[in-house]
Amino acid sequence: MNNLIEVENIKKNYHTLNGEIEALKDVSLEVKEGSFVSIVGTSGCGKSTLLNIIAGLEDKTSGQIKFKKDIKIGYMLQEDALLPWLTVLDNALLGLKITKEEDTEYVKYLLKTYGLEKFMDKYPKELSGGMKQRVALIRTLATKPDLLLLDEPFSALDYQSRLKVSNDVYNIIKKEKKTAIMITHDIAEAISLSEEVFLLSKSPAILKKHYDIIMKERSTPIKNRSLPEFSYYYDMIWRDIDEPI
């Protein structure tokens, strides 16, 4: 198996008192080891549901998910979800504390590497939004996941910090050689960060289209935005979103 994870014909129905609701109709996708991919789609299309199913936080109705090996999955949420009563160091250690693999040295190393050394003993309220998001990423990275799931990780930030933080997060993920699946409704963000983009249809979702994002001079997300291929993919995905299935 060449891919780290293969998602096959995932279907998800919810039960409510007003009847059954179809959230995901039929979604299949493959993610290569070491790649950064994005899943885009309009809000409410079932992106988060898909991510939750991959993470094992929700059950699927049918379909299957194959992993290359027994992999560890890390999850990064929309909000940093830091605990205000813990220091930055203790917050970054929280994941390991829960999984009972406390490794203070490794977490300190990560904080040091990603510019948070001076803030280890500070509390979250003393940090900027971007720094908090970095601590949240380190909390997840500390558990040494093989696959990172990013659930709209920058959507709580203002536009300016969004660009900068997405750049930071991308660099960290690449430096740590992690495979990542990000969901976002921001097409520009998806193109600038990913090597592949999966487009989901409106709910109940099916996989509408798949794009290999090929950029000759690919570099950091911010710089990618000014490459000629960027606007090419941007226009194409926008056009495809409105296209009927």
């Binding site: 993470a55 999850y75 949420l77 979800a81 829960i98 999984t99 997840t140 558990t143």
Partner: peptide, 9 residues
């Protein structure tokens, strides 16, 4: 969100 964060671990 914090509860979900705990679930992810």
């Amino acid at each position: 969100v914090r509860l979900k964060m705990f679930d992810t671990f």
